[in-house]
Design a protein around this nucleic acid. Structure first.
Length: 349
DNA sequence: TTTATTTGACCGTG
DNA sequence: CACGGTCAAATAAA
């Protein structure tokens, strides 16, 4: 999977740069809005830097493919992306594997997912000048839930998950491990995808109408792992460029892939699409009405999460095209015809 | 108070 | 059984 990626790399490089441009625009907007917080601006700046770093590292790795990593001339931080997808994707990227797991799933509700979540790793070197805020803050809010000593590692590994784990059922987690030899290198492994709306958390109240944004679903591109970055924006940019998103293969595998969600997308005025449009409102509010079902008194969160997942996967197909103002969108609805949720019955493709 | 971190226990996987 | 990942009670911080 390393030789035939020329186009993919170029594409992702372009995407990366375009994303940087878009982030810079957002920053420009934010600079003119007095209400935007410092943190927002800071994180935008950070994202821009990260974007440039990534673009540079792409160039470095592709041009001097033999040598290995040379230190980036910027001298601030070196970021390296390592992709380690689940074996199912790794094995045969583009070909059809006809033998899915036909059996093996008789399950009585037990086997949940979260086994083979998409995961990728960044190696970040921090040098003096950027405090701990630098690459360690990637724009999301994480909450530490564990720390373990790893065999053979000098430093413990920290386990973080999205702060909105219960609220939005954001399954994204990350692990931060400090390198043994070079304590300035942090290896950050991301797992899962953010489904939270990274609420602006401005001042007091969380806005009741959470802009439900499940936009494009990543087609889990085997082509360019770089897109697995945590930036949803690039998808928004990439899709209009003509990425044909084929959702079919995804669902057969499982619902492990999660749609991209914009974090603090700019609602700068334009583009605040009414997701609860006439066509899709029913689906959106489905969750609200369904919360009362099942009568789970205390397992509220769990139930909510499951529904949220289902919702996100099902609505991403229906809503995102409409939200983006895309012509297609009806066809996608047919991709989820027999979606039953009390029995993960699986669609036999 | 609420929210986050620490830290040992627990539990699944190999 | 050991290792790695997560949970959750206790504790700290806001």
């Amino acid at each position: 999977m390393e030789n035939c990626n020329m186009h993919g790399e170029k594409m992702s490089l372009i995407n990366e740069l375009a994303q940087g441009r878009e982030l810079a625009r957002q920053l420009q907007i934010h600079l003119n809005v007095p209400s935007s917080s410092h943190g927002t601006r800071e994180s935008l700046v950070q994202k821009i830097i990260v974007s440039y770093e990534k673009a540079l590292s792409m160039l470095n790795s592709s041009s001097s493919a033999s040598g290995g990593e040379q230190q980036l001339p910027t001298g601030h931080a070196a970021i390296r992306m390592i992709e380690s997808p689940p074996p199912s994707l790794n094995g045969s990227p583009l070909s059809e594997d006809s033998d899915r797991e036909f059996k093996d799933q008789d399950n009585k509700d037990s086997s949940r997912k979260r086994k083979t979540l998409p995961r990728w790793t960044q190696q970040i070197r921090v040098t003096s000048g950027m405090g701990l805020e630098g690459p360690l803050d990637d724009g999301f809010s994480w909450r530490k839930y564990g720390q373990k000593d790893i065999l053979g590692a000098k430093y413990p590994r920290g386990y973080y998950r999205c702060t909105h784990r219960n609220a939005q059922c954001c399954l994204a987690t990350k692990q931060v491990q400090r390198s043994d030899e070079d304590p300035t290198v942090f290896e950050i492994t991301y797992r899962g995808r953010h489904t939270c709306t990274q609420a602006s958390t401005s001042t007091t109240s969380a806005p009741p109408p959470p802009p439900p944004p499940p936009p494009p679903q990543n087609s889990m591109d085997i082509v360019d792992p770089q897109q697995n970055q945590q930036q949803p924006q690039d998808l928004l940019l990439a899709i209009p460029q003509g990425l044909t998103v084929v959702t079919e293969g995804l669902d057969t595998g499982d619902q492990e892939l999660f749609p991209y969600n914009p974090l603090n997308h700019n609602y700068v005025g334009h583009f605040s699409p009414p997701f609860m449009g006439p066509a899709t409102s029913g689906t959106q509010y489905f969750s609200a009405s369904e919360q009362g079902f099942g009568g789970g008194s205390q397992s509220f969160q769990g139930a909510e999460c499951e529904i949220a997942e289902i919702l996100s996967s099902s609505t991403s197909a229906t809503n995102s095209p409409a939200a983006l103002g895309f012509p297609f969108g009806q066809a996608d609805q047919n991709l989820y015809p027999n979606f039953s949720f009390d029995g993960p019955g699986f669609f036999s493709s």
